[in-house]
Design a binder for these strands. Structure first.
Lengths: 140, 140
DNA sequence: CTGCGTGCAAATGGTTTGCACTACG
DNA sequence: CGTAGTGCAAACCATTTGCACGCAG
């Protein structure tokens, strides 16, 4: 799994450092859209000397090189996601939990709609749904 | 226009202060999703002594009382919107311009879809589209 | 008058930056 | 080796907070 990262980094001319590997793996492990801070906290366990600045820098460069994506919470903290496929997000109105939501049928439906109904003066590149609501946890 | 605000404030038991009125009117004037800072800058022209803290407090209370809504940019600064109807947003990939996008037909389409295809363990409250792309400005 | 709302200034918290040092290639 | 990457600490900047004063009701 991390040799995959190794390759990708090399392709982009980025050096393969232990920090980059650790950060990437942290995001895979913490697979529910960790914040930068989540990553820092997690990484410090096995890698106590890593610095906050580095984590931010690495995250940025991974995003730039399309190894990660940024998504936003309702409550405004940046989060990082290792799932690169095109998907939407479920935002819990109460907790700030986020979950991925993939729905190919819905995508088709929406694309179809915009094929028929172009937006004036605007070229659509990407569409994301922010679906806000509530998870049914314990109650039934 | 501002007597409308006056009423709403009174309904909610909030005092009608010149600051609240000024801030509300600023958002109407600056009608393209101003940031708190935009509002501050604009307001200081005619209201030089208003304090930053007050602006934030007022904005918060207007949001709480459903006179404004918060939306987010791609680039992570909070913005305020006086249009309360349910609408989506066009995000320009280059500038950080935002525009409203209303499309009743699309809403119906999506609601229909979720009526047929419920999301497991999730009760949908609200759906917003983040449509990213590019405005065709000068070039044809 | 009474307390809600304001102004001010200091604090917060996530993120960024600058620079000397380290280590990948 | 040389330069990209790191660590550290200070800086940033939007936003929040605490408290004394002022004005709307």
């Amino acid at each position: 799994m991390s040799h995959l990262l190794r390759e990708k980094l090399q392709q982009k001319g980025l050096k393969v450092t232990p920090q980059r590997v650790a950060i990437y793996e942290a995001i895979i492990k913490l697979n529910n859209h960790p914040t930068a801070e989540n990553v820092i906290e997690y990484i410090k366990k096995n890698h106590p000397n890593i610095s906050v600045g580095t984590v931010y820098k690495v995250l940025d460069s991974l995003v730039e090189n399309a190894l990660l994506k940024k998504v936003k919470t309702e409550r405004d903290i940046m989060r990082y996601d290792a799932v690169l496929s095109n998907h939407h997000h479920l935002y819990c109105a109460e907790t700030d939990k986020i979950e991925d939501y993939e729905d190919e049928q819905l995508n088709l439906l929406i694309n179809e709609h915009f094929k028929k109904n172009k937006i004036k003066n605007f070229k659509v590149q990407d569409i994301k749904l922010q679906i806000t609501g509530q998870f049914n946890t314990h109650n039934k």
